[in-house]
């Protein structure tokens, strides 16, 4: 499962661009992750501020 720390997130959209299944969307000041997420972790890797984690 992907966990987004909304207190850390700078809503920059970098994670959206690397999602191979297009599961992430940047709304205004938060990101939403759809059920199609395959937990590859690309978003967690790219985040400039460390707001995303893949939880086992």
């Amino acid at each position: 499962m992907i966990s987004v720390n909304r207190y850390k997130c700078g809503y920059c959209g970098a994670c959206v661009s690397v999602c191979p299944v297009g599961a992430i969307e940047l709304i205004e000041t938060w990101i939403e992750i759809a059920d199609t997420c395959n937990e590859c972790g690309a978003c967690a890797r790219i985040c400039p501020i460390g707001a995303i984690e893949v939880l086992a």
């Binding site: 959209g13 959206v16 661009s17 690397v18 999602c19 297009g22 992430i24 940047l26």
Partner: peptide, 15 residues
């Protein structure tokens, strides 16, 4: 960078 429009139209913009 967070573009969805291209993907919705079938252009793969994934980085």
């Amino acid at each position: 960078i967070e573009s969805k429009i291209g993907r919705w139209a079938g252009i793969d913009t994934t980085l």
